[in-house]
Amino acid sequence: MSNKVINKISELSESVLATTDFFLVDVEIKGGDIPEVWVSVDGEERGVNMDECADISNEISFLMDAHELFSGRYRINVSSPGLDRPLVDRRQYPKNKGRKVKVKYEQGGEDLRVEGTLQDISEQGIIVEINEQTTVTLPFDDLVETKIIPSFK
């Protein structure tokens, strides 16, 4: 699917989300006989629940139909990114403070990895506590991928 369609869906989604406390994380279109539009949304303070996803989906779908983005049928799925998805927006970090993370980052042209607890977040980057004596400060510009490690306590 063209980037033009994805960009338009992103634009429409952001207009819907502007009236909520959520923000757009990603838009994907998966091919097939009936295209599937996947819209991931998140909140700075909390996640999005199923009823909110349904409301957002209805509004985005209405706008997509009005703009005639697809000539035939399509499916739309609105959801939170889920724990298996990397954090891609700086606004996702604060609510995950204190959680275990796996971070890939680049430093001096070298790809590195660190695992620990997301200790703090600033305008410039994150601090990951590897153990009681060791922390590492990582600028946002160096981050390649940050994933939450689920904890089932």
Rank of each mutant, 00 (worst) to 15 (best):
S13G: 11
L17D: 08
E36Q: 13
G43W: 08
A18Y: 06
E44S: 10
L12R: 06
V37G: 12
D26I: 05
S2H: 10
V27E: 06
E14H: 03
L24M: 05
D55R: 14
F22C: 08
N3L: 08
F23D: 08
E45N: 15
N58Y: 11
L24D: 04
I29A: 07
S10W: 02
C53E: 11
S40V: 00
I56E: 09
K8T: 09
A18C: 04
I34R: 13
G43L: 09
E45H: 07
A54T: 11
K4Q: 14
K8D: 05
N7K: 14
K8H: 03
D21F: 12
I9C: 02
I29K: 07
F62C: 04
T20L: 10
E28P: 01
D26W: 01
T19C: 03
D21C: 09
N58L: 13
E59W: 02
F22S: 08
L63S: 09
L63C: 00
S61T: 10
I34V: 15
S57C: 12
I9G: 09
I9Q: 05
S57F: 06
N3W: 02
L12P: 07
I29S: 07
L63D: 10
V39M: 10
M50G: 02
S57L: 07
I34A: 04
S15G: 00
V48H: 10
